[in-house]
Design a protein around this nucleic acid. Structure first.
Lengths: 239, 239
DNA sequence: CGAGCGCGCTAACATTTGATAATCCGCCGG
DNA sequence: CCGGCGGATTATCAAATGTTAGCGCGCTCG
C-alpha cells in the first residue's frame, strides 16, 4: 500500500521495519479526486497531510489577473502538503492533474512521531528539504535557462523521480497534462509553450504523444538541460 | 548574541528559556566574510550550518554559460544552510553580498537536539519550511508577475523579514546590492533590471539611493506586488 | 592631482515572448 | 452520421526583454 512512500523515503536512507510500521500507523482513510479537483484549497488549515498513492498533482497559486503559476508537481510517494503540518495555514492550492488516489496522515499522529521517533522525523524533514531543493532548481530554470532547456530539465527531473517509485516504462513515462497546464509550470503563454515543445521534439531527443513522453536520447537531453541530479539527494546515507 | 535568531524563530511560536539555552549550546565559533566571498561552496559537505548574525547573503547557482541565478536572500537570524544538516551535500553556493558576521552550529549538536528536544526540532524544521514557502513565492513571481510587480514583491518581503529582526529604520532599510546582483535575483539582464527599477521609482512608491530603500507608499507598493505575507507564517501559534 | 574602475544609466537594434485569431483534428453525445 | 467542443498547431503582429556599446559620475589609489 505505502510502497511508493517507502521507495521515496528509502532512497535517502535505510528505513527500518519499525519505521515502516510507524508510517503505516500514521495513515487513516483513502480518498479519490477527479481531474481538476482541489485536493487542498488555498488558505485552508488542514489537520492532516495528504500522500499520493497514484496520480499526478500540482501546487499552484492564482493571481488577481487570473494567471496561474504551478510551483511544484507531486508524484506517487510524495506528500502534497507535509509542510502544512507546521506551517498550519496553506498558502497555495493543490489540484489533481490526473485522477488521484490518496491517503490521509493526521497531524496529531505526525506530531507524536516527532516526539518519539527522531530518525523517522529527520527523514520526513528531509522529504520537505528535497522539496525545497526542487524549488531552487525551478527558480534557476525560470531565471537563467532557455525555455527549451527549462523544459528538458523538467522532463529529466520527472523521469528520475518517477523511476524511483517505479512509474516509468523503459525510457517512457506518462505525463497527463495539457500544454496549457505545462505553460503554467514554465510560466509561459500557451502559444509559446507549444513552440518550445515543438523545438525539443524536432531536436529528436524526445517523442511526445498521447500524454506519453519517451526519451530517445537521454544523454543529449541531460546535456540540453544541464541536468545534475545531486539536488534530489538520491544517495542512501545516514541522516 | 543570538537575539535575531530568537526573534526569527520566536515569531512563529513561543520559545522557552530552556530552548534558547539549547540554541546557545548549539553554537561554536564566529567568523567573518568579506563581500563576494563564498560562505559555503557548491558541492561541499559541511559538518556545520551557518547562522547570519549580521549582513546579507545569497544562495546561488552558476550555469555553464556563466549565468548566475540567486535562489534566495538571507538576512540576520537566518541559517544560510540549515538544510545541509540532512541534505548532506550542498547543491548550491552561498555568497556574502555584504560583510557577513556569522556563527557556526555543528551538525552533531543539531542532531542531538532532534534526539531530545522535539518542539525545538519542529521549530527548526519550520524554519526550513518557511524557506520553501519563500521559494514558492519567488517561483510565482518569476513565472506570472510583471517584472515591476516582481521587484515590488521582493521589496515587500525583504522589508517585512528585516522588520522582524529589527533591521529596518522607519520605512527604510539597507539593501547593499548592485543592480547586476539584483538582476541575478529576478533573472533579468542588467539593462532591463535598470529599466524596471526606474519604473518602480518613477511610480513614486519608493525611493532608492545609496543602497537604501525607502518605502514611500506601503499600501500602493503592496498593491503593485499583490503582497500577502501569509506565506511567511508570522503568527505565533503552537507548532 | 590624475588615471582607472565600478556602477548606474541610456541608446539603438536584435531576439524572444505574448496576444489574438484562425484552422485542424479527434472525441463524444445527440 | 452530424455537430460541437477541447486541445494542438500555425500565422501575424505587438510588446517585452536581451545585446552591445557608450557616457558620466564618484571613488580609490598611485
Amino acid at each position: 500500500m505505502l510502497e511508493s512512500l517507502f521507495l521515496n523515503l528509502g532512497q535517502h536512507d535505510f528505513l527500518s521495519n519499525e519505521e515502516k510500521a510507524l508510517l503505516e500507523g500514521l495513515m487513516s482513510s483513502e480518498r479519490d479526486f477527479a481531474v481538476g479537483q482541489d485536493i487542498v484549497t488555498s488558505g485552508s488549515r488542514p489537520t492532516y497531510s495528504t500522500l499520493i498513492l497514484d496520480g499526478l498533482a500540482a501546487r499552484y497559486k492564482v493571481l488577481a489577473d487570473g494567471g496561474r503559476q504551478i510551483t511544484s508537481l507531486q508524484v506517487p510517494g510524495d506528500f502534497v502538503d507535509l509542510h502544512a503540518f507546521l506551517l498550519k495555514t496553506l498558502d497555495h492550492g493543490i489540484v489533481a492533474l490526473s485522477p488521484c488516489h490518496v491517503i490521509i496522515a493526521d497531524h496529531s499522529k505526525l506530531r507524536s512521531i516527532t516526539e518519539k521517533a527522531p530518525h523517522l522525523t529527520r527523514l520526513l524533514w528531509l522529504d520537505t528539504l528535497v522539496d525545497g531543493a526542487i524549488h531552487r532548481e525551478w527558480i534557476v530554470a525560470m531565471g537563467r535557462r532557455s525555455k527549451v532547456s527549462h523544459l528538458a530539465h523538467l522532463l529529466c527531473e520527472l523521469f528520475v523521480r518517477l523511476q524511483v517509485v517505479n512509474r516509468t516504462n523503459g525510457m517512457s513515462f506518462h505525463l497527463p497534462v495539457s500544454q496549457a497546464e505545462l505553460a503554467d509550470v514554465l510560466g509561459l503563454s500557451v502559444v509559446h509553450m507549444n513552440r518550445v515543445i515543438s523545438a525539443l521534439r524536432n531536436s529528436g531527443v524526445i517523442s511526445w504523444a498521447n500524454h506519453t513522453v519517451t526519451i530517445l536520447d537521454w544523454h543529449k537531453l541531460q546535456q540540453i538541460a544541464e541536468f545534475d541530479p545531486t539536488y534530489l539527494s538520491m544517495k542512501r546515507e545516514p541522516r
